[in-house]
């Protein structure tokens, strides 16, 4: 997207569609086939993305189904008051942002490292098989990840505790220790996404101009210097674009992963509750649509502002990297 929009902005506009209604109509007729080709997708987004948007009004009402979204009593900011006052909104924001930062920093680091090392591997079969195995976690559902986690970590039969008791230790009550979960969740996230994410960097390394490596060799560069002065700088644009995109989504979490790892275990909420799990739980176990909508709206608006801010900053620094 970044690239796509950037490029289009740089390119001269061929036609303006908005100047005169007449030319607009003519333009529609002339492009009817291409427009028709876009129609299914447009309809899709109208029906499933735009049409529910007015429903965000629920955040300001005491919603009931009889009166509907716009007939329900208006309560102003009541639904937000407690979320803010209790610090819940802050906790959710903090958790969401910190998890995302950890995912971004550690994720990119690992992905780059794996990509560089994969590039060093010479054996074709080793490369192929290890790649296949590393992608595997990306293919399974988060439901299965929840199963895996429970198998590893539960108190009575978990693999980790089985190992501990076999070596004479006391089993650990992992599902009651809130402090352990950021690490566990981050590990699972890395486990699931690193193999897949490294392909992008790997592809970028493959695309580095060979003459650079040759020049480095002629200069007598060591392997470390080759990484430091050739590979890493070449990965910088990729990294920045990925980073920007991750920053844009910093208010979103990996909902399925969190939900299937933690579920309704209130003992862990302090360190594991992110905006999306909270929004889901409010509906699913508290039948509370108004607070849920309020948190969702906050997420959307705050996320929107963050993207705009990130984009504005990037544009100041280097216009080419801006999203739009």
């Amino acid at each position: 997207m970044a690239a796509a929009l950037t490029q289009e902005r740089v390119q001269p506009r061929e036609t303006s569609t908005t100047k005169k209604p007449k030319s607009l109509l003519r333009s529609i007729v002339r492009n009817r086939v291409l427009l028709l080709m876009c129609l299914p997708a447009i309809l899709f987004f109208v029906v499933f993305s735009y049409a529910p948007m007015p429903g965000a009004w629920i955040a300001f009402t005491n919603f009931n189904y009889r009166d509907g979204i716009f007939g329900s009593p208006f309560v102003g900011l009541r639904n937000f008051e407690f979320l803010i006052q209790s610090g819940q909104l802050w906790l959710l924001t903090k958790n969401t942002v910190l998890y995302n930062l950890a995912f971004i920093v550690l994720g990119n680091f690992l992905q780059i490292a794996i990509a560089i090392m994969l590039n060093e591997v010479r054996s074709k079969y080793f490369k192929k098989i290890s790649q296949a195995v590393m992608f595997l976690p990306y293919f399974i559902s988060v439901v299965l990840i929840g199963v895996i986690a429970f198998n590893l970590l539960n108190y009575d039969t978990g693999y980790v505790n089985a190992l501990i008791t076999q070596t004479g230790g006391d089993p650990i009550k992992i599902y009651s220790i809130a402090g352990a979960w950021p690490i566990i969740i981050i590990l699972f996230q890395l486990w699931q996404s690193t193999g897949y994410g490294s392909i992008v960097y790997f592809a970028a390394i493959m695309g580095i101009d060979n003459s650079l490596f040759e020049a480095a060799a002629i200069d007598g560069a060591s392997a470390w210097q080759r990484i430091r002065y050739v590979i890493l700088p070449s990965l910088k644009p990729t990294f920045i674009i990925l980073l920007l995109f991750s920053l844009g989504g910093i208010m979103n979490g990996n909902f399925g992963l969190f939900w299937n790892l933690v579920g309704n275990n209130a003992a862990l909420f302090q360190t594991t509750d992110i905006i999306e799990t909270s929004v889901y739980r409010m509906i699913i176990s508290q039948n509370n649509f108004t607070s849920s909508t309020a948190v969702g709206l906050y997420q959307s608006l705050f996320g929107f502002a963050l993207v705009m801010l990130a984009n504005w900053i990037v544009r100041k620094i280097n216009e080419d990297y801006a999203l739009f």
Partner: peptide
């Protein structure tokens, strides 16, 4: 000629969404 407007129409849904409950 409509490619920018339609692209943005689609892209916008990633910037702002109705949220789970309204949907």
């Amino acid at each position: 000629p409509f490619r920018n407007s339609i692209s943005f129409f689609i892209y916008f849904t990633t910037l702002f969404s109705a949220g789970l409950a309204p949907t």
